[in-house]
Design a protein around this nucleic acid. Structure first.
Lengths: 345, 345
DNA sequence: CTGAAAGCGCTAACAA
DNA sequence: TTGTTAGCGCTTTCAG
């Protein structure tokens, strides 16, 4: 019940050594004799002593806390990322202070300030539709920032790891073109979002390479309901699209449900649907969605590595790294012969 | 670039006041003259000063950090919970240090120690299949612990908020019985899990009230694939079940996919399926799952309230609170006349 | 290798 | 209302 803090001084007294001796025992590379260490360890164990990280942080000027700012947590994609990230960081002795934010700008600024107050050692920002300079400001304040699943402006001073959304979009275009589709539609995400912009750009570029243009375009804003509405709208025409590329899986599911259950069309016979992300649900039989796989584990690993590289080894930020992800061919879209055995494109 | 820490002393110097004056300006209920406050604010702004929370925490003995330990992050249910929780806490000036753990016991102990090192003000543990006494130990050390989505042993000293899983299970039994089902199967989760045990107990109790017994039982361990296998197994008999209650939605989806696409049975004509949780996907047209709704927001709110009550007002732990959740009637299960308009049971 | 002493940046009595 | 003075629990010189 009583929250009596066991301090290093208490341990020192009990072990019959100085307080600094205790400190040394709990400091990895310090020089202590075996005998002292033993005495101290014993006393510490008896008292249930554990060093106070806050006090240590205050001195060392580093907290071993990494701030994580995420928006869009409802996205099916994040849980796994969070898990990986947190575990990966834990393994290296860091912990994650999490901040969930809406997309509202001023919120974001306030949150960022709050984070900084914890003297975090680094910041990871995911999927923030934020102008680079907001983050920039904090980077200048001395806190390394790595972004991921994000978009990077021409600004080369920020570093980040991301999937190559442009390439991914183009892959989808190739795939759909190879499938002989004639009326290809695109279901866009949140217009300002990094991923949205790049995926669409890549997709359009890919179509152009095949002398194709977009048949129609709807905006789903990465939202299930909005995606459904947009789909209805795009298909409510004399000759509906024969293929649809959704900017992420979440919207692809929405579209598929609408196409099948409201419009009564068959997938992939009448319409091919392709998504982006390869979230777990994509492989569920009900959807069996053809989609671009995000090399998530790889992205997370790299993000951690880059960030800790900056923090611990003063390494220069690596700039933008973008990782390629394969097209996972399932059965929601017509399969061209060339892709018959699910290979990458 | 240079990470020069702006301290309160620097601000004091610039404002021409004492360092403690600066401190007071940034301490909510302190007495400072308007004039001083202004001077200090100005100087602080110019220097870009923000108080160092770590230093403050060291003195006050409280960090305004809440530890959150979660297992099973892959469950579709958590993202939303995390978001709500984090935002709710942020609003009250606390932040969340997150720890993701596997179900391995010794891992858990280590993690808990690490958390404590941050001098967290409170701990929220979600869905941990952990013996009460591990957490107990920490509670004794003076850190309030609230668990949620969890199970509570007879041990009444721990407090927690949870959905009333027993009642929920019984509701499902009533519903299925009212639907005239004769061969009712149950798809169990992780055998040791809190939710699993209570839901099944309630379900069986409910069946008994209607002179029914379980037709068959499979174990899916809250895992998609395992749930599919268990379903296959349960239905691979001469006369398969005509109703299936899955211990959570995730497994219900797995079961539905197997029932429809592998077994070629119709839902709900041939088999009724009911889940538990009411995750977002449950309302998607492909599944349209009848399920017990978890009053998640309510649970989260209450959890925060209880925890902060203990921390800030020294309130006595409230013991176990369990919240009732309604049955959401959709179309994955035959609808008895009595339930025709989707009401609670 | 070890103890003494000086802080890290801040809050909280205590006088003034 | 203010400045002065102790620390919070720990790390880190600096002598010894």
């Amino acid at each position: 019940m009583a929250k009596e803090t066991v301090t290093s001084t208490a341990v020192a007294k009990r072990a019959g050594v100085s307080q600094s001796a205790v400190s040394r025992v709990f400091t990895p590379g310090a020089s202590v004799s075996k005998k002292t260490a033993e005495k101290v360890r014993k006393a510490a164990a008896e008292l249930g002593y554990r060093p106070n990280r806050l006090a240590r942080s205050l001195i060392k000027g580093q907290s071993r806390i990494i701030g994580l700012v995420v928006a869009y947590l409802e996205n099916q994609f994040y849980p796994t990322v969070l898990e990986k990230l947190s575990q990966s960081l834990q393994k290296r002795g860091y912990h994650v202070l999490i901040f969930v934010t809406n997309i509202v700008q001023d919120d974001f600024d306030k949150i960022l300030e709050e984070i900084m107050d914890y003297q975090i050692d680094g910041l990871i920002a995911a999927s923030l539709p934020v102008s680079a300079d907001v983050v920039q400001r904090y980077k200048v304040e001395g806190v390394p920032v790595v972004m991921f699943f994000n978009r990077f402006e021409a600004d080369d001073t920020l570093c980040g790891v991301t999937a190559d959304n442009f390439k991914g979009g183009r892959k989808v275009a190739n795939f759909l073109a190879a499938g002989g589709h004639q009326r290809i539609a695109y279901l866009a995400g949140h217009e300002a979002a990094a991923t949205q912009i790049d995926r669409e750009a890549g997709f359009l570029a890919g179509l152009a390479e095949h002398q194709l243009t977009l048949y129609s375009r709807g905006v789903g804003g990465f939202d299930f309901q909005k995606a459904q509405e947009a789909t209805r709208h795009m298909f409510d025409v004399e000759t509906p699209p024969d293929a649809l590329f959704a900017a992420n899986d979440h919207m692809a599911f929405a579209a598929m449900d609408t196409i099948r259950f409201e419009l009564g069309l068959r997938i992939p016979e009448d319409v091919s649907v392709v998504g982006y992300d390869d979230v777990p649900v994509a492989s569920w039989p009900s959807y069996d969605l053809t989609t671009i796989h995000q090399p998530m584990e790889h992205i997370v690993d790299l993000t951690v590595e880059v960030l800790l590289g900056i923090i611990e080894d003063q390494k220069e930020p690596a700039g933008h790294i973008s990782l390629d992800g394969p097209l996972v061919v399932r059965r929601s879209a017509r399969i061209p012969d060339a892709f018959a055995s699910s290979q990458d494109s």
